[in-house]
């Protein structure tokens, strides 16, 4: 059953910018669903609309079966069903972790007593119990992220919505956060956003690939990879930008000094590629073999690199 359903969702900001362009999505209960896309692709805009904090320009959203932007009763029931940890939670830095959670509990409508019990419970869940009395501005980035998740959990919602829960964290902290999310996903639906393909691929049940306000592709990571990125690729970084067009017999994408070359069998084709490039007088800085993954998928479906800024020219 879909616990989140959105149809024909669009958002045109008052300044005229169309940030989300007619997307539809469904989140299955109990899944970890990821919105993956580069900066500015409309992930936050979408999550804000899906959590009831940004009014869509058009479209329909149902959360736990209730119309999120409908009448007051439905709007309240829909919001009761979800907990949102935005990209930067507005914690009061000089209040303790526990006090901040108590505040969120009150906002949720819990009595002070219940809010406190609940706050202690969720602090335990996110492994912050020993930091309950710490001022929030004394917490590390990773601890703050876990506290944000705790805040979203206070109201005991069925759905957790997390905007970029791992951004800015080092690999160890990221790993720890993912362990927590997996744990939580046992009895909650988790919808999150990320711009890290590897994360989306490893941890999510279903992925929506965002590109310029649209959904470029969707599916389980496995399905997306088999469909769009069965092949590996070889990424070559050149010392300087090539002046003339390259003569390659492989399909490749180029961005500045970086070439992404799609190959069937990396081990046999790598020497040939190097040879060809050297013949054309190019100096190589680094070479990397990239296994099939969502990053490839993104490249295939959008024609752009997930982390690129400049546009990519495709030559076959």
């Amino acid at each position: 059953m879909a616990i989140i359903e959105a149809y024909n969702l669009s958002k045109r900001y008052p300044n005229g910018y169309l940030a989300v362009d007619n997307i539809s999505l469904r989140v299955e209960e109990g899944s970890i669903t990821t919105l993956m896309g580069p900066n500015g692709s409309g992930k936050t805009t979408t999550l804000n609309m899906l959590t009831g904090s940004l009014r869509p320009s058009s479209g329909q959203i149902r959360i736990c079966g209730y119309d999120l932007w409908g009448d007051r009763r439905q709007a309240v029931l829909a919001r009761m069903c979800l907990g949102y940890a935005s990209q930067d939670m507005p914690f009061r830095g000089k209040l303790s972790a526990l006090e901040n959670l108590l505040w969120f509990g009150l906002i949720r409508g819990l009595s002070p007593g219940k809010a406190k019990n609940r706050a202690l419970e969720v602090l335990d869940q996110v492994e912050l119990s020993e930091y309950a009395k710490y001022r929030v501005d004394k917490l590390s980035g990773g601890q703050r992220r876990r506290l944000a998740i705790a805040a979203a959990l206070v109201g005991n919602p069925r759905i957790l919505v997390l905007d970029e829960p791992t951004s800015g964290l080092d690999p160890a902290a990221r790993e720890r956060l993912w362990r927590l999310l997996r744990e939580l996903s046992r009895d909650k639906t988790i919808l999150l956003s990320t711009h890290i393909a590897e994360e989306a691929e490893r941890h999510s049940d279903y992925v929506y690939i965002f590109h310029r306000g649209r959904i470029a592709a969707e599916g389980s990571p496995r399905a997306l990879i088999t469909r769009y990125a069965r092949k590996s690729s070889i990424r070559v970084k050149l010392v300087s930008s090539p002046v003339k067009n390259l003569m390659l017999k492989w399909k490749y994408y180029r961005q500045d000094r970086e070439l992404t070359i799609i190959v069937d069998d990396p081990s046999s084709e790598l020497p040939k590629i190097v040879e060809t490039l050297l013949q054309q007088g190019l100096v190589l800085e680094s070479i990397e073999v990239i296994r099939p993954g969502l990053e490839q998928v993104f490249l295939e479906v959008t024609g752009e690199l997930l982390h690129g800024t400049a546009s990519v020219s495709e030559v076959t």
Binding site: N48, T51, G52, S53, L54, R72, A75, V76, L77, R79, M80, L82, Y84, S86, D88, M89, P90, F104, I107, R108, G109, G155, V161
Partner: peptide, 12 residues
């Protein structure tokens, strides 16, 4: 940023 968070909660 607390407006976003409030609006996503059942508070009118």
């Amino acid at each position: 940023g607390s407006l976003r968070v409030l609006l996503s909660n059942p508070i009118s």
